[in-house]
């Protein structure tokens, strides 16, 4: 699972009001190179919750993203490469996503998070 996907997923347990962002627990991270597409990144930037991406990439062991970022940084090739790497090339392969409000763990196995809810959580 890429951090782009993490950036949109939230915990949808009944009664939870703030299920975003899910905390990441790591057992295994893999990196897969993908083609660099600056136009896509510029288009995605305004849709991304930046703080969630920074924290998620930190928990994956990548600390190159700045905490705060101005849209003008998108002109910097160096910044775009870092953004690209964090958003699209880091994969949570094994571990868990944890609901920030209830602490409920959603296991991630072979890169696939299991977000199925129990009957009493719906």
């Amino acid at each position: 699972m890429r951090l782009l996907t993490h950036n949109m997923l939230s915990s949808n347990i009944k009664g939870v009001t703030n299920g975003f962002p899910l905390r990441i627990e790591i057992e295994k991270v893999v990196e897969k190179q993908v083609e660099f597409n600056p136009d896509f990144l510029k288009n995605m930037f305004p849709k991304i919750e930046w703080k969630a991406l920074v924290n998620a990439s930190h928990s994956m062991g990548y600390v190159e993203l700045p905490e705060e970022v101005e849209p003008s940084r998108l002109d910097s090739e160096d910044f775009l490469h870092k953004f690209h790497h964090a958003l699209l090339e880091l994969h949570l392969e094994e571990g868990a996503l944890v609901c920030p409000e209830t602490g409920r763990r959603f296991p991630v196995s072979k890169g696939i998070p299991n977000m199925l809810l129990h009957e009493d959580e719906v």
Partner: peptide, 13 residues
Amino acid sequence: DFIQCNIKNLGWR
């Protein structure tokens, strides 16, 4: 990417 989830209960921005 793949996610195991019931579409009805998908929590998504």
